[in-house]
Design a protein around this nucleic acid. Sequence first.
DNA 1: TTGTAAGCGTTATCAC
DNA 2: GTGATAACGCTTACAA
Lengths: 339, 339
Amino acid sequence: MSNITLRDISKALNISVSTVSRALTDSHEIGEETKKLVLAYAKAHNYIPNRMARSLKVGKTKSIGVVICSIDNSFVAQMLDGIDQACKDHGYQIIIMQSKESYEQEKACINLLYANGVDGIMISPSYQTSDFSHLKELQEQGFPIVLFDRITSEIDAHKVAVNNFKGAYDATQHLISRGCKKIAHLNSKSNLALTIERFEGYKQALADHQLTYHEDLVKFCNTTDAEKVDANIETAMRQLLEKQPHAIFTTTDLLTTKALAYLNEHGYRVPEDVLLLGFSNADLAPLLNPALSTVQQPSKEIGQLAAQILIQLVKGKDLGPTATTLLDTSLHIRRSTQR
Amino acid sequence: MSNITLRDISKALNISVSTVSRALTDSHEIGEETKKLVLAYAKAHNYIPNRMARSLKVGKTKSIGVVICSIDNSFVAQMLDGIDQACKDHGYQIIIMQSKESYEQEKACINLLYANGVDGIMISPSYQTSDFSHLKELQEQGFPIVLFDRITSEIDAHKVAVNNFKGAYDATQHLISRGCKKIAHLNSKSNLALTIERFEGYKQALADHQLTYHEDLVKFCNTTDAEKVDANIETAMRQLLEKQPHAIFTTTDLLTTKALAYLNEHGYRVPEDVLLLGFSNADLAPLLNPALSTVQQPSKEIGQLAAQILIQLVKGKDLGPTATTLLDTSLHIRRSTQR
DNA sequence: TTGTAAGCGTTATCAC
DNA sequence: GTGATAACGCTTACAA
């Protein structure tokens, strides 16, 4: 411990604290002589400015809060990597908090971050969240907030996400192009807009290709409860497979891999018996059995872009009216949709 | 912004700031009456204590720094999840910094964390790191440091990791029990002790089963340079396969999956042509082609335990002489080592 | 039981 | 150019 302070320097050099402070921040109104002297001494004695004191004084912490569902999720981790990179570039620090898909925890995270004095918050809301007043309240006080990945029209803010409708549309269309007529849709139950958007993309693709929509080829599966998630997915898969679909389109990373596991375990051959295609950012998709066709999201870019926007906001830049940036997903065709 | 402060409360209630402060920290020396009054007002006006001010005053931030190679790595993410959980339980916050396997960046991380006033640091050193003086210097000042996952005998501190020797030994023994005589060893080149420990475990298992050690069945592959990593692994795999091994034992997550990819791409059938077994914490291991046998590490537990120890240290508890805790890995047998 | 006042390390506002 | 001095919001002796 025992860091040296401005006062230590000022005493040692027999100049005032304020001069030292100004010299270190490279103020114009300081003589070159003293500036060099101070800088040299500071470096020699390994002076590290105390961020706490500075933050207390200027009211900014140069840190931003990031709320995500869980760090233990490769897609999220990729976004965090992008966020971290953007922040490092601008000298900002991030404080990461996990909501674990709980609305209550999400609120707690926001409060904690706020108490920590973060200059802004970027958040990817939990599955449970449908009431956004905790964010709106902050916003009304002029607190900078950016939504990423899981965005909502409930709140007026800068947002970054992917074009979920198009991603789902393209995926469905690909399955149709493979000759599939009966395409099952396995989605997760949530309050998120992306859930419904992916569903809409699926339906639109069917409609555009004169395929009739069958309600019993669609399941919305509860995936929030860690205890029951496996059972829920199994039930959904069983019910879908009873309808003998030609293909299954899954809308989340978890559903996609769990669906594959189910098919493998129950003796379905992919793609011979049924094609499988889903949203997933798993690095290992090409190595799965069979290599899995996926809708991939530009995770790192989402994080980077959102962080850049938030940092602009935090710095007081006027970005004009709030805007939503939608990045494109990319379709990766592999063996699971080969015919 | 515009949070209310202790002064605001004190003015509103016509009592002194210190009384308010004490009331909020539930000091014994405050009347029940005023305590209730203050608490009620604080809650009603949503008082949030300013951490910066508190930290500045007491010299502790209730935050700890975590240095890892990269957040974008499922094993690391799992450990972080464990760390976060332990910290949340004790009201501590974490600041995560990535070294990206660079020694220079690692030092920069440590400096930044220190400047941020974290109360302690837990670190999993980079592949490049062989000089630990940046950590020793902090330690000498009495700064709490815990090493996890990638530990070294170069530094005297509390450490948490897995028994790498045993993990590698068990893995090799399993391959031997499957009838393999020529077992290739694909390791990564690093300054880390775990690298050599896993190698030693492999050699010991061979020796204990009267199998002769062949140098040309062993490759240490440079995996730090992201540009060249694929080429390096391919070269190593090609060279190993020229020796027609019965099995390949890989010692890191990356090597394991890349090895599988190589085998699949080059027409080797696993396990018919060659068995594959490696260290990996990938959730998707059972879904790979073929389902991959793995040596799994208790990632979450490593994180949790290391965090708990650091928090004790930070709180000033005397944990006695520094100790190293080694958790056991677990062997998950799947199709890639089936005969 | 409550109040007063000093101080944590910075930065900002005045003077000189 | 440089130096006092106050202030950021909080905790904590020391008084009362």
